[in-house]
């Protein structure tokens, strides 16, 4: 466990020094501030626009970080051969994957906490209070990011960063339109497509993580709306981390 922690800490430190992530974080912060002006031009919907744009920005920025880190971290270790000195130590390969993944999880969590704090400060400027009802939506954004990250790590365990990025983005986009895909499947006359569409909807159901509309418009949010996606995320992460570990364990680091 301690080796996994050391590798996770190292991954986190690496992200802390990454200029691309700094730049993207700055851009996301600017977008949240910009939502103030967007709110101004909307009729009596100022705070809702800020919250909606703010959470969408946090989600998109998080997806970028998850994909960027997930596809690059292993690749960089292999490309720069920093992995040689790690593998030559009494470290199992599964510890490398778990350490890297937990490092990314830590980065995503810290990012989300910082961006959330920024969003709350922005909202405070308008309504002079902290709206705790946003928390369930933000928690689900985080668990959705864990899924995106595990797919990025999974794909990067056997393919190039470009392909890994492409595949992960594809999975994310399919996951985000899973409801529409399911409906499309239901109406289709092609049985094969119907099976495919409903399977994809069940496996990559990232729409379940979207509670933004509910919290922004103060619609009821039930406990199951939060617990189910968290369990689903944990299950998916465990499955795809196992796949990554199996692939990584057999891989030659040329």
């Amino acid at each position: 466990m301690s080796r996994i922690y050391i590798l996770a800490k190292n991954t986190f430190n690496e992200a802390r020094h990454n200029k691309v992530l700094h730049l993207a974080g700055g851009f996301a912060a600017v977008l949240i501030v910009f939502s103030l002006f967007m709110g101004e031009v909307s009729l009596y919907q100022n705070i809702k626009v800020v919250k909606d744009i703010g959470m969408a920005t946090i989600s998109l920025f998080g997806v970028f970080v998850a994909i960027y880190m997930g596809v690059n971290l292993l690749y960089k270790e292999l490309e720069l051969r920093t992995i040689y000195t790690i593998v030559s130590k009494p470290v199992d390969r599964f510890e490398i994957i778990l350490g890297k993944y937990l490092g990314i999880v830590l980065v995503l969590t810290v990012n989300l906490v910082l961006m959330t704090a920024f969003l709350y400060l922005t909202c405070f400027v308008i309504e002079f209070r902290f709206d705790l009802e946003l928390i369930p939506a933000l928690v689900l954004i985080l668990f959705e990011l864990f899924i995106v990250a595990v797919f990025a790590v999974f794909f990067s365990s056997f393919s190039s960063p470009f392909l890994s990025g492409l595949f992960t983005t594809g999975v994310f986009m399919v996951g985000r339109v899973s409801n529409e895909l399911g409906l499309f499947g239901e109406r289709s006359r092609n049985e094969l497509f119907k099976i495919f569409a409903t399977s994809v909807q069940k496996i990559f159901d990232l729409e379940a993580f979207n509670l933004r509309t509910e919290v922004v418009h103060q619609l009821p949010v039930y406990a199951s709306d939060v617990y189910y996606p968290i369990l689903y995320s944990t299950f998916l992460v465990a499955i795809f981390l196992t796949f990554s570990i199996v692939i990584f364990a057999k891989r030659d680091f040329k």
Binding site: H17, L80, R81, T82, S88
Partner: peptide, 21 residues
């Protein structure tokens, strides 16, 4: 094996290490 690796020290060719450390 873990036991063997704990008795080995290794320097790779043209090493590159985490340069922010």
């Amino acid at each position: 094996s873990r036991e063997v690796k704990s008795r080995i020290g290794f320097l790779p060719e043209n090493p590159y290490f985490y340069d922010y450390l």
